[in-house]
Design a protein around this nucleic acid. Structure first.
Lengths: 347, 347
DNA sequence: CTCAAAATGAGTTGCGTACCTCAAAACACC
DNA sequence: GGTGTTTTGAGGTACGCAACTCATTTTGAG
């Protein structure tokens, strides 16, 4: 009836006794310090395994006096999504200080590889962990690898650099996000046939191009009655997005679906409304902000694909902390889901 | 450029000096122990406020030696959703034991108020915290209140008892979940008109009736072309669900939508398939299990409304721990979202 | 067998808090 | 002023581990 999940509370001393060695030797093994015969290492590790021993995290944390410092390298300038991440980190401040963790924001131009790489290089040695919104570029990859080699824990945030040796990626699978957007547009358009427009920031951005790829894949394979128009580039700016979309709407009267891949949502919505086609066109975009929330409630947007920024911020901190402590990562917990947000499940 | 988020690392000794009292007095104030003049209490609290002092959680945890014990009171018998919660708790075992936390499962008949209440009473005193899948009933409410009065922290899990004095509810808003299901069915049906069927476990269950309420609300107000048929009760069993639905499908050729409120999904799917209407009827249900995953991939189910069981398990533990430690709860983090899961964003 | 190097034991200190005891001081009351 | 009560101070111990020193034992090479 009452089924217990946790082990008994052994201490290092118990492990030492079990392995027939002294506390000092267990300590050496536990921290990979030199001067222990391979055979002894094995005996100690066996004792640890056998008892499923976990060092008491509170005791370990207390003993190592030194506070941990993490850096968050984020885009400079006004990006609502990034501001949300920063805000959620702010909400954690009591949590952080109760654990004597220091989190510092470093603003930089993440779109310029050399600037970003240089920013990363300056962090070396000063921090126990770094979270970075990274551009996928050889220079950046090298900078990340240097940090890792210097013993800093690195997680990529929102945008990944899979070819680097970063310890973890906190963000969504953008191809799947694009596929989800495609399925939604296709299903919500229903029986109608017609054309589908795509507005992106730039196809040079990895996350945008991956989303477009996934979207197109689904449209081609599952919704043959819908034809996808060439991708418009709005550079994530409202004005330009509005302009290019307005022109396209003028030329095609049979547009039934619209996928906005990045930002510039305000402009996209305005072009739709001005053309008087807000209700006929199925409009799917990304992220839940004050604006998209309003558009969803008004029925202008039909769905938003979202990655929970609060979750991303907290997951990044937790992952960095677990890495620094040598604790296992709860993969399931730290995985960022692709949220489908419609009017009735607005968070 | 580098903007720091966290406070400096003061200790109790610093606070004592600031307030002009001894460590012992600060300790008395911090733990609401008697024997301190009101005026002195004020001075100490002021010093704490002024410095935004947070006790070092690791030190506090270490000092109080006594391990914490939590109990999870869950339904006995084979319920896949509950089994998932249990499995996720199992995945946390390393995390738990590194913090010297004991989590025990208590299986009981949560559908019988008196049995459930009795189970809760037996826990009094033995646990620092209790998470319970609770039926909303006066006897249960009283049992919960008794636990709270005895100093045990209580969170309701999945199913709430809002009228009790439980400290926290970990679960979704079921009315909103029903609304979301309704919006999905309506939108995915598209231009067609016809009838919509509802299969529930029992309308006596609070979560089921709330979901039906939300679903009907949306259908009535936003999809006037769809008419909702009377609710079928399948008691969350496959056989009975299949039987009642098969009969209904036989009587109505114009069913275009189906909402399965609870379990019994296997039977519902079978009735649909056997009638050869798997593809024409928009089928929305709850929870991501091995079965619903398969049905989504096959295209039999169109969407699943899901509350992440892993998140619920971990949130319950974190909330109980925060309550026990007197730490603030990260509301945003512990809030359970209503996930819309379609084929392309299957977790 | 000898000797240096490697491996190990034994012990100390400190981290910041909880929890406890005992004595001293301050206070209230008659 | 004396009495009893309340408030405060001072100090200690313990929690489990990290990080260190130094002495001692074991090992392997010559």
């Amino acid at each position: 009836m009452a089924d217990t999940l946790t082990a008994t509370a052994l201490t290092l001393k118990d492990i030492a006794r079990e392995a027939g060695v002294s506390l000092a030797t267990v300590d050496r093994v536990l921290h990979n310090r030199p001067g222990v015969r391979p055979d002894t290492v094995r005996r100690v590790k066996a004792a640890i395994e056998r008892n499923a021993f976990q060092p008491h995290v509170a005791a370990a944390e207390l003993a190592r006096s030194r506070a941990r410092r993490f850096a968050f390298v984020m885009p400079a300038g006004p990006n609502p999504f990034m501001q949300q991440i920063e805000a959620y980190l702010g909400e954690m401040s009591a949590w952080l200080s109760a654990r004597r963790l220091g989190v510092e924001m470093v603003a930089t131009d993440v779109f310029d590889p050399s600037v970003l790489a240089a920013s990363l290089e300056t962090l070396s040695g000063d921090y126990d962990g770094v979270a970075v919104v990274a551009l996928d570029h050889p220079g950046v990859r090298a900078a990340i690898n240097d940090l890792v080699d210097a013993g800093t824990r690195v997680v990529t945030l929102v945008s990944d650099v899979p070819s680097s040796r970063r310890h973890h990626y906190v963000g969504i699978d953008n191809i799947a996000a694009g596929r989800t957007a495609g399925a939604l547009v296709g299903r919500l358009v229903g029986q109608r046939s017609g054309k589908v427009a795509i507005v992106a920031g730039s196809q040079g951005l990895r996350d945008h191009s991956e989303r477009i790829f996934g979207f197109s894949q689904v449209m081609a394979s599952e919704f043959p009655d819908l034809s996808v128009l060439p991708v418009l580039e709005g550079r994530d700016e409202d004005g330009r997005s509005e302009q290019v979309l307005a022109r396209l709407l003028g030329r095609h009267a049979d547009i039934v679906g619209l996928y906005n891949v990045g930002a510039g949502t305000q402009g996209v919505a305005k072009a739709l409304s001005d053309a008087g086609r807000g209700k006929q066109v199925v409009f799917v975009g990304h992220d839940v902000t004050a604006l998209t929330r309003r558009l969803l409630l008004q029925g202008v947007m039909d769905a938003a694909i979202s990655q929970n920024p609060g979750h991303e911020a907290r997951a990044a901190v937790r992952v960095l902390l677990a890495l620094a402590r040598g604790e296992p990562i709860l993969r399931e917990q730290e995985k960022i889901r692709i949220d489908i947000v419609m009017r009735d499940n607005l968070p």
